[in-house]
Simulated scan of single mutants.
Amino acid sequence: MGEDDWWLLVGFGGQALFMGRFVVQWLVSERRGRSVIPVSFWYLSILGALVLFAYALHRRDPVFVAGQGLGVAIYLRNLHLLRAERAQAQQPSG
């Protein structure tokens, strides 16, 4: 197996992680009977985007690099907002 084959596996692995986030979102939504975006969706988004980012760097694809890089920033921001929301909810009111 050559180096290019390994990079193809990396690319497909990143794509699988990225696709997996939608499967998780769909299963959780079905279980709850409403549309839900679980926290695991954001973690799979980050992992998938980072792997695809590495693949895009290897391929020297500036469009793909920019898209995945921006995606990672957005996914991290969503996790930050969720943590802030949880911290706010845990503070005693009054």
Rank of each mutant, 00 (worst) to 15 (best):
F41E: 03
D4G: 07
Q91F: 07
P38K: 12
D4A: 13
V51D: 04
F12M: 11
V65Q: 01
V28H: 02
W6M: 12
G14N: 09
A84G: 02
R31F: 09
V39D: 03
V39H: 00
A56G: 05
E3M: 00
L44T: 07
S45P: 02
S93F: 05
G69N: 08
R34P: 07
Q15E: 10
E85L: 01
M19C: 14
G13L: 06
W6K: 03
A56T: 02
W7S: 12
L47N: 01
R77T: 07
A49D: 01
A73E: 05
P62I: 15
L52A: 09
D61S: 14
H80R: 08
Q68M: 15
R86C: 06
L79I: 02
F64K: 11
N78W: 05
Q25R: 09
H58E: 14
Q68N: 14
A84F: 05
P92T: 08
L8S: 09
L81C: 03
A56I: 04
L50C: 13
F12A: 14
L27C: 12
F18V: 09
G13W: 03
V24D: 00
Q88W: 11
W7Q: 10
N78P: 02
F64R: 08
Y43H: 12
V72F: 08
G67E: 00
E3C: 01
A54T: 08
G94E: 01
D61W: 15
F12G: 05
R83E: 02
W42E: 01
L9P: 01
Q68L: 06
E85Y: 06
V28N: 09
V63D: 10
G11Q: 08
V10K: 06
S29W: 11
